[in-house]
Design a binder for these strands. Sequence first.
RNA 1: GGGGUGGUAGUUAAGUUGGUUAUAACGCCGGCCUGUCACGCCGGAGGCCGCGGGUUCAAGUCCCGUCCACCCCGCCA
Length: 603
Amino acid sequence: MSEFLSQHPRTHTCNQLTKTESGNEVVLVGWVQGLRDHGGRRFIDLRDRYGITQIVFKPETDAKLHARAHELRSEWCIGVAGTVEDRIGNGGSPNLKLKTGEIEINANQLEVFSEAQALPFMVEDHIDTHEEKRLAHRILDLRRKPMQDNFALRHRVVQATRRYFDKNDFLEIETPMLVKYTPGGARNFLVPSRLVPKNFFALAESPQLFKQMFMMSGFDRYFQIVKCFRDEDLRGDRQPEFTQIDVEMSFVTEKDVQAMSEGLMVRIFQEALGVQLQTPLLRMTYDEAMDRYGCDKPDTRFGLEHIDLTSLLSDLQSGGVPLFEQTLANKGMIKAMVLPKAHELSRAELDKLEDVVKQLGGQGLGRAKVAESGTAWTQSPFAKVISAEAIKAINEKCLAKDGDVILMQMGRPKLVHTVLSGLRLHLGAKLGLISNGNQTTWNLLWITDFPLFEYDENQKTYAAAHHPFTSPKMGDENLLKENPGACYAKAYDLVINGNEIGGGSIRIHDPVVQAKVFDALGISKEAQEEKFGFFLKALCYGTPPHGGIAFGLDRLCMLLSGSQSIRDVIAFPKTQRGVDVLTGAPSPVDTKQLRELQIITLP
RNA sequence: GGGGUGGUAGUUAAGUUGGUUAUAACGCCGGCCUGUCACGCCGGAGGCCGCGGGUUCAAGUCCCGUCCACCCCGCCA
C-alpha cells in the first residue's frame, strides 16, 4: 500500500487552484492526461473528475524527480505534491482554456499509484472510435469528460426528482423485481425458482400493479426511481433494463397528474440545465397528432405537416388516377407532405428519398412538382393521367405553390403513417430544420385522449393501447362491449422533441369496469382469475380513484445531455443484441446449477 | 423475423479494371529539446485485411456462407 497518501493527503482537486493559492504547498491526485517533454522542463496535465492542472518538473527543484518524470505515460494514476506557482512569473504563458490555467504545480514529490498499458484509444473529449471498442474498454470511455458530464447530469436529474416529490409529500417505496409472470404486453425476462421447481418469476416490466395497490393501501402519493426489464428488441433509445421515474396519485384527474408532472419537468430542467420551462405545456389529442404528423410522438420543432387527401380524392373519383382508385377501393388512405421550394432538392436527392421510403417499408414515393400557377404538375408519374380539377384541388388543399414538391403516400393507414412520419423526420434532419447543438429548442407537449384499444390484425383481437388498467373516457365504458375500437382512454404521453419521455393514465378503480375491459380484450373469466385474481380482489375493498405516470429516466437524460444514444447515459449498457460485451453476459451456466433448477437446455 | 451501413496496424481511415514489399494520420517505442499546453524535431517497431469456403496463375479487392457492431421496420400493453 502507498504511504504517499498518509503523508500527503489530497489537498485540492484539479479544478480548484488559482493565483490566490500561489506559494501554497498542495497535493493533487489523478491521471496523466498529456505529457509535454522539453528536456529541461517536463509538463504534464493532471486530470481528475473536476478538471485539469498543469504539473511542471524542473531539474533545479529536484534533479532526480525531474528524471523520473521522464518515465510517466498517459493515464498513469499518480499523486503529486508541490508548490503552486504563477505561470507568467515562471516565464510561461497562461492557458485560458483551463480554470487553473494561470498556475502550475512545481512538483517536489511524485507517487505512481498505478501504471497504465498502451491505450486502445485516447481518453479525450472527441473520439472517433467504434462503440464496440468503447464498450469493451468502458472504464477508459467513462473517464472522458463528456461521459463524466453525462453522469453528473443524470445525478442532478435524480436528485431534483427526489427533492421535488419529497417536497410534495410523495413517499418513495420499493416494489418487487421478481414478480408474477403475466403474458401479454412486453416479453418478460424469466427467472427460475429453485425453491418452487419448474416455476418461474418474471422480472418486472414496470411496477404498475404494485403502485396501484399502494393507492388501495392508502399511501396516496407514491414515487420510485426504479429499474424495469423488457425482453424486446433493442434500439438506440431502448435497453432491456432501464430506469423509470414511477409515479402514482390518489383522488386525481388527468389534469392533476399532468400538472404534477409539469412541475417535475420545470424542476429538472431548472436544476439540470438551468433552463426555465413555460407551463402549462401544450396539449394535442392523439387523433390530431396522427392527422398532422402521422405519429403519436411528434417532433413539433419543425413543420412539414401531413395533409390527408383521402376524402378529397374520394369526392373527385380519384382524379382519374388508377393507383388512387385502387387505394380508395381497399379502404386505404392517401396523405401528402409539401417540400417547399425554399428547401428545393435535386432530382437525384428526390430519388434518394425513394430509398428512405423503402427502408421504412413503403412501396414507393408519389411526387409532383407544382407548376403553372398551381394548375399543373411536373416530374410526376401521375401528371399524365390525373384530371386538371384534381391537380388544382390537391394543390389548394396542400397550400402548395409553384416549385413546391408534393410527396405522397397511400395504402394501409398504419403503413402510410410509418412511412410518411419517418420521411418527415428524415427531411427535418436533412434540411436542417431541427436546431441542435448549443441552440437547443425544447418542445414539450402532452398527447392526450389515446384510443383505449388497438386492433391486432394478426390476432384478430383488441389489445390495450396503453395497458389494461387504463380508464375509459367518461361515458365510453358503455361502448366496451359493442364497439371497443371507439373507446377513448384517460391516457396521456409526455413528448419532448419527438421522444416519448413519459406515459400514464387514470386507472380503473371499479372492479366491474375492470372486468368489462378484460372481457373486451378477450380474456376469459378463468384467465382473468388466474392472471390478475389477486388484483381484481384487491380492487374490491374500497379503491380510491387514482392515476399516475412513468417517465423514462434514461431517455430524459439522453435528451438533456444531447446524447445520440441512450447508451451514453447508462454506465454499463448492453449492445443491440442485448449482450454486455464488457463482462460477457449472458453466458452458459454449470449443468449442476441447471439440474438444481430442473432445467434442461435443448441441443 | 426483415431491410440498410460498416469491420484493413493500438485507433481512425485510404487502398484504382484482381497484379510486385498493403498506405497515411494519430497513438506506441527510442533519442534530442528550459515554457509547452493538438509542443516540436530525428529515428523505429507494429498487419490472421472479422471468420470460413469458393473462383483464379494471382483475392484486402470478385462470389457464397457466417460472426460482430450500429441504424431502421416489425416488436416494445
